[in-house]
Write a protein that binds this DNA or RNA. Sequence first.
DNA 1: ACTGTAAATGCAATATTATTGCTTTTACAA
DNA 2: TTGTAAAAGCAATAATATTGCATTTACAGT
Lengths: 146, 146
Amino acid sequence: MGISNFPMITSLRTTLKEHGLKDTQPRRFVLQALEKLKKPASPYDIQKWVDAKGGSINAVTVYRIIETFMRIGLVHRHPCDGHFSLCSMPHKKGHHGFLHCTSCGKTQEFHDEQLCKAEERVARTLKFRSSTHVSEILGTCAACAA
Amino acid sequence: MGISNFPMITSLRTTLKEHGLKDTQPRRFVLQALEKLKKPASPYDIQKWVDAKGGSINAVTVYRIIETFMRIGLVHRHPCDGHFSLCSMPHKKGHHGFLHCTSCGKTQEFHDEQLCKAEERVARTLKFRSSTHVSEILGTCAACAA
DNA sequence: ACTGTAAATGCAATATTATTGCTTTTACAA
DNA sequence: TTGTAAAAGCAATAATATTGCATTTACAGT
Ligand SMILES: [Mn+2]
Ligand SMILES: [Mn+2]
Ligand SMILES: [Zn+2]
Ligand SMILES: [Zn+2]
């Protein structure tokens, strides 16, 4: 169990079976898109990627697949209260860090243990049982600054 | 300068003048709404608040006012790549922390210096010039857990 | 292999959120 | 008081998200 054996599209079938879910082409498409895009993507981004590859997928289906994948921990959805916005494949379950360059639009993922610990401590202090935490840092990337 | 003298609606006029902007009723409405709501709100949330108070404001105007307010540092917009989503008044310029209860929907703001420092360190390490950072922690609040 | 069935997808309609261009109104400097 | 640029309103449209229902499909059981 867990997602540490990802991203390997070949194990998708296994993971789906573990959760009693069917192995379908749309689901394979969505996972591939998220793997290849390598950055947070919207449902429509995913649809475009599939189209570009000569495939086809309904946007509603993408929304539903993402919901399913979130439920089984395959993808992470950026928490923007009531908006779908973006999702991506987490390096590690339950937390995420992003650096987003407002100049070129590129997003880079990071993971920092101290930052994780700090977020967990904050939750604990405020009697909050946290399931996920996300850090987003906005600014200018090295390439754009130069 | 700075936003430390907020939230005081009376100083809005001054701040606007400092930036060569006009003191208008819609702008006062938006600031009041954000102050009173005390949590991240969408443009339509703000419009509803104004309506509920017997006032009236066009949604497009709310969007534009929020853009203006962001530019002069009066409000913070949660960074959700390409989506407006939510904005709120920052306790301190340039950073934000939120605990969002997925059960009751309440959002509580926090500020943690260590977490701030950790985010700044991550940016520095990755040669990233950060302007803003946001932490969102999702889970269950004390009230809902009980 | 075939078949029945629940699950998944597609499709259509609708709701919500966000943007754009243009007209009208308004703040405020002169 | 008045002229003018800025701001707000209005209308149209685009983009994003959800819902209900019809159709297709994966796959378990035979
Ligand atoms: Mn973490
Ligand atoms: Mn900070
Ligand atoms: Zn960049
Ligand atoms: Zn709660």
